[in-house]
Design a protein around this nucleic acid. Structure first.
Lengths: 355, 355
DNA sequence: TGCCTGATAGTTATCGATAACTACGACCAA
DNA sequence: TTGGTCGTAGTTATCGATAACTATCAGGCA
């Protein structure tokens, strides 16, 4: 770049160089802005030779188009919004990581926000992303109603539900088969000889409901049924859902008229809390009570008692979600909502192995 | 909104409503666009009554300004870029969560990218963020040179280094006092009566160097010194840095001529690997060998042997970084680079408690 | 020769907001 | 009455790119 830039630069501010614009390159090469633009976007309306020359110069000058300007005229921002309930939760961290990896190199930036498992906050975050006109949204939602999603649809922005379904909403979905999760976990406990199998369930999301269903089905398949008080719920405030919530829930189970000899927990942090409660009560795992978690994202092998857990392959969820997202913003997006169900796998460790 | 929108709508596309624009509101209220704009941004050049009327209507119509248009004219995108080495690593996940929480409600969106601890990839991600004209960047960098940062500075974009310093770069920094980390960990082991204290160090970042320094200083303060082969390094490929790397490094230490009786590990995942190696070798923790980790972000209480760890308060790091970032994009940004050093705290658990 | 076609490059208007300036009336002092 | 100031609202140009159209020229064909 040898020619000076047009216009009057107010002050030659020390070291705060304005980025190169198409106009600059155009003047530099004796072409029109349009030609640069066409070259950059592989528009057919230009000769191969010119395109090569322009691209070479673009690389030399390290030119990057102003995405705000492009967004203004095209209406596409080249951004993807991702809403998760908690970035610290290893499951969602892994999903985020995989989505990030899956969209890398496609020219999109990922705006990641956390809802802290709070419905109102999640609606705000979704509104922010709408205001920002993301091209597609990925949401692991804490919502129980479809209202926010109607707003997204009104704007014509495609979105994908991750991990959690919203009943009555025919949306794109990538997640695990939660009924299979519950079935797998409970069946395993029965197979190991446990009979009084309890469940610490999660809050009112499709995920929790599906797992309860699978758990019940597994018991029923062996002519068993949950004993009274053997399904306990985690508090609905976000803070109770992890380890402390698991501790409290397990204590409740230990006081039940018939003490369970196996507990299937909604997720691993809850299982951790449950294990602590059991050990604190002077009981042994798995001799007195077996524990199965879900997620398999913790360092489960290193726990006091290595934890049997249902693996949801969160990396695959993130990867598939990223692929679907790119398809939705691509040239010929699928018209019908697509559902990708991952089959869960059980990873057996000491916490559920009857000797 | 009762009046029809201007211009010719090509087709009244079913349910894909274009968002409301200032122009629409202006026409609707019989005002000019400028008045709406001024009301929205609390410009003084407008009467209180008009402002209230406009804001009321804005809220009714759920108007959200087009940020791309605003960015184009103002040059500010209302976005913050965050680059971390790994979203799955609990330390960085916690930092990301805290940054997200700390910037929430200030009108900024957070673009989070992961470098996978790869220098080239990190440079790419930084370039992406530059292309996107983020207003400020937060980087936990894997770089060893200042080159990328010069590019950021050339653009006049403020940035903050998180956790890891770059030598010779007088930049804003928020992180922990790493020398104190090493000193704290090693001193604790000495206090507990251990004498042959080894260190599994991290790759060549300021963090790792600082901890080595502190570790050496603690030993020297008690007339001790690292024995030959007692400082081993984790491979530099990202994959080796976690648990598997810790396992391999610890095996090396166990084969040393003089076996260590205490190991200070660069971080918790490494400590986990080291613990596994020790237990696999038929040795006991902490009777034969004590282990101290760093990070304190795992569920350390639940491990086979609860792990003593140096707490870096990653939440505070994220919070302070967010505050500083907001200050840097604020009306009167600090001119001199600011350094915020968090004092580490030791959390003692069974893995280092000599009976 | 004259007209059409295809390939390539350029012109113009536009996206939605804001900076900078202008317009206008009310009010006050000289 | 005149001129200046203040408070409020409007006008115009602009940010950097792209969509849609136009211009130009070479070549083919009748």
């Amino acid at each position: 770049m040898t020619t000076a830039r047009s216009g009057k630069e107010p002050k030659p501010k020390f070291e705060a160089a304005a980025p190169v614009r198409m106009k600059d390159i155009a003047r530099d090469m004796g072409l029109s802005t349009m030609t640069i633009s066409k070259a950059l976007r592989n528009h057919p309306d230009i000769s191969d030779e010119t395109r090569k020359r322009v691209l070479k110069r673009i690389k030399e000058l390290n030119f990057q188009p102003n995405l705000a300007a492009r967004a203004l005229i095209t209406g596409r921002t080249s951004t993807i919004g991702l809403v998760v309930p908690d970035l610290l939760h290893p499951f969602f961290a892994q999903v985020a990581k995989a989505v990030s990896a899956g969209t890398r190199g496609h020219g999109y930036s990922l705006i990641i926000t956390s809802s802290e498992d709070d419905q109102a906050l999640e609606r705000q975050e979704i509104d922010q992303l709408l205001a920002r006109r993301v091209d597609v949204m990925l949401i692991a939602s804490a919502q129980t109603t479809e209202e926010s999603f109607r707003r997204i649809e009104e704007r014509g922005i495609p979105y994908i539900l991750i991990d959690r379904l919203i009943t009555g909403l025919p949306a794109n979905f990538v997640g695990v088969d939660d009924e299979a999760v519950g079935f797998l976990a409970a069946s395993h406990l029965i197979d190991q000889g446990y009979r009084r199998i309890a469940h610490i369930r999660g809050p009112d999301t499709s995920t929790a409901l599906g797992r309860v269903l699978g758990y019940r089905r597994a018991l029923a398949a062996r002519q068993l049924a949950p004993l009274p008080g053997h399904i306990v719920s985690i508090g609905s405030s976000g803070d109770d859902r992890g380890e402390p919530g698991g501790y409290a829930a397990a204590r409740k189970l230990l006081r039940a008229r018939q003490r369970p000899d196996g507990i299937f927990c909604f997720n691993d942090p809850i299982a951790l809390g449950a294990m602590r409660a059991i050990l604190d009560a002077g009981l042994r795992i798995p001799e007195d009570i077996a524990v199965v978690g879900c997620g398999n994202v913790l360092y489960s092998d290193f726990l006091r008692v290595p934890l049997t857990s249902v693996d949801q392959d969160s990396a695959a969820i993130g990867r598939l979600a990223a692929e679907l997202a790119l398809a939705l913003v691509g040239p010929k997006p699928p018209v019908r909502p697509k559902t990708e169900l991952i089959e869960p796998k059980l990873v057996v460790r000491a916490s559920s192995l009857r000797k």
